[in-house]
Simulated scan of single mutants.
Amino acid sequence: MGWRFMVFWHPLILCPAILLLYRVGFPLIIRVFEGKKKGEAALIKLKGIKTTARLLSANQTGTYINEQPMVLFKVEYIDFQNHTRRAELKKNCKSS
Rank of each mutant, 00 (worst) to 15 (best):
A41I: 11
S57W: 01
N66K: 09
I65N: 07
T61S: 08
S96W: 07
S57D: 05
I65C: 04
F33M: 05
L19G: 13
L19F: 12
K94M: 08
K91S: 12
T84K: 11
S95D: 07
L28K: 06
K94W: 10
S96E: 13
L56F: 12
Y22N: 07
L43M: 13
F33A: 04
K50A: 11
N59E: 11
R86I: 03
I30G: 03
L14V: 09
K94P: 02
F5E: 04
I49Y: 14
H10N: 03
F80L: 10
A17H: 10
Q60I: 02
S96L: 11
M1W: 05
F80T: 02
K38R: 15
Y22T: 14
M70W: 05
A42C: 13
A42M: 14
M1F: 09
A87I: 04
L28Q: 12
R4S: 12
N82W: 06
C15N: 14
I44G: 06
A58W: 04
Y77I: 05
H10M: 08
D79Q: 09
L43Q: 13
Q81R: 15
M1L: 02
Y64N: 09
I44H: 01
N66L: 02
L56D: 12
Y77P: 05
F80K: 10
G48S: 04
W3Y: 08
R4Y: 12
R54I: 13
M70C: 06
S57N: 09
K90Y: 15
F80Y: 12
I65H: 02
M6E: 02
H10C: 01
G25F: 00
M1T: 03
K91M: 11
G39T: 12
A17E: 05
M70F: 00
I30R: 13
E88L: 04
W3M: 13
Q68N: 11
F26G: 03
F8D: 09
